[in-house]
Simulated scan of single mutants.
Amino acid sequence: MNDEHVGYETKTVHAIRGREGKTRSKMEQDGWELVQQDPGALRSSLVFRRPKKPLPRKALIIGGSVAAVAVIGIIIGANTEGEPAPVETATAIARPEASARASDSAVVTPSATVTTGVGAASAAAGASAATDAEVLQVFNDYFAERSAKGVVLAKAVSDVRFESGTVRVTFDPAKAGITKDQFDYINPFLNLASFVASPIAFNDDVGNRIRPSVQSIDTVASDGTSLGSFTHDQILALNELER
Rank of each mutant, 00 (worst) to 15 (best):
G177T: 14
D141T: 06
S164F: 00
A144T: 02
E134A: 12
V138K: 01
F171K: 07
A176W: 06
T170G: 04
F143C: 00
F171Y: 10
V138Y: 00
E145L: 07
K149Y: 05
L153H: 12
A144Q: 00
S147D: 08
T179S: 15
F139C: 08
V157P: 11
E163A: 11
T179R: 14
V151L: 13
T179L: 15
E134G: 10
P173C: 14
V138A: 04
V135A: 10
A133L: 09
V160C: 07
V138R: 01
V138E: 01
Q137E: 09
A174W: 05
F143R: 01
V135F: 08
N140W: 01
A154L: 05
K180E: 10
S158H: 02
V157K: 11
D141E: 07
V169E: 07
V169Y: 03
K175G: 06
T179N: 15
E134N: 09
A148S: 12
D172H: 03
R161P: 01
A156L: 06
V151P: 06
V157T: 13
G150N: 08
A174G: 07
A174E: 14
F171H: 11
R168D: 11
G177E: 14
K155M: 09
V169R: 04
A174V: 12
T170Y: 02
F171D: 04
G165E: 12
A144K: 02
A156E: 06
F143G: 00
A174I: 07
R161D: 03
E163N: 10
